[in-house]
Amino acid sequence: MVASPRGADGADFPALHGLSQGYRAAEPAARPPRAPRPLRDTLAFLLAFGALHAAWTWARGSALERWVIDDCTVRTGAWLVKLSWPQAGAQAAGSRIAAPGGGINILSGCEGTEVLFLLWAALLAFPMPAARRALGMVLATGLVFGLNQARILVLFHALRADRASFDLLHGLIAPVVMIALSGLFFMLWIAPAQATPRAPAPRP
């Protein structure tokens, strides 16, 4: 039992402990994401891609480039070749996957950075929360790396089987597939940001 307070004249005041059940503090409405602005976003994309490409060009011959090509790309590629075709005798040798009967050179541009920079630039330019952008860039890095390693593996096998198919895969099919799958990832990643947020339901 809750006693009602009394005033100076002895009159009862209504108890206030139940008022919170009928009234609730108004909650701030969720701020909708910024709508895309095609011209500005396109300019941001071009600037981001240009900056990334220029930075990578400046890093030519550096320890960073050797780490990306020799350590990450070539060593992983040689391991995949040995895993799928032990008899080939593939070995990592600097920027080359060497093997008796022919190997492949991984030159600048063959490590997948151009496709990665396109995807990074698109994620940087499109309006989305910073945490989602950062996670998207991490996942994009893993995606492009995996696609490029698969490309190198297929090219190694194609080189040993048919030089004409190697040239077609290297010059046309593999780049188109990598760009298409990267574009699909981007469209799926930005889909939640493009969805119209629901207005909060009114509360009594």
Rank of each mutant, 00 (worst) to 15 (best):
L47M: 15
A51I: 13
A78Q: 04
G77S: 05
Q87H: 11
P28T: 05
D41L: 04
H17L: 15
P38N: 01
P36D: 00
L19E: 15
G50W: 12
S62E: 02
Q87I: 02
P36L: 00
A59F: 05
I69H: 00
L80A: 14
D70N: 09
R75Y: 02
S84D: 06
G50T: 09
L83K: 08
A44I: 04
A78P: 05
R37A: 14
V68H: 07
P32A: 02
L64V: 10
D41M: 11
G77D: 01
R34V: 04
A93G: 01
W67Q: 03
W85F: 12
P86C: 06
L46T: 11
P28F: 04
G89T: 09
Q87L: 12
A26K: 13
R34E: 12
G77R: 01
P33Q: 03
R75G: 01
R31W: 05
L64C: 02
F45W: 13
L80R: 06
W58C: 02
P38L: 08
W67C: 10
G89E: 11
R60K: 07
Q87E: 15
L83N: 07
H53P: 02
W79C: 03
W79V: 01
A59E: 11
T76S: 15
G18L: 13
G89S: 12
H17F: 14
R37S: 11
A48T: 11
R40A: 13
P28S: 07
T76Y: 03
L80P: 07
T76L: 11
T73F: 03
R40N: 07
L64A: 15
R37W: 07
E27F: 06
G89K: 09
A59M: 13
D71R: 05
A35D: 00
L46R: 08
T42V: 13
G22A: 13
K82W: 12
Q21T: 12
R34T: 06
L52H: 04
W85R: 14
P36N: 01
L46N: 06
W85A: 15
L19R: 13
A92F: 01
S62N: 00
A78I: 03
G50K: 11
A30G: 07
P36G: 00
G50L: 08
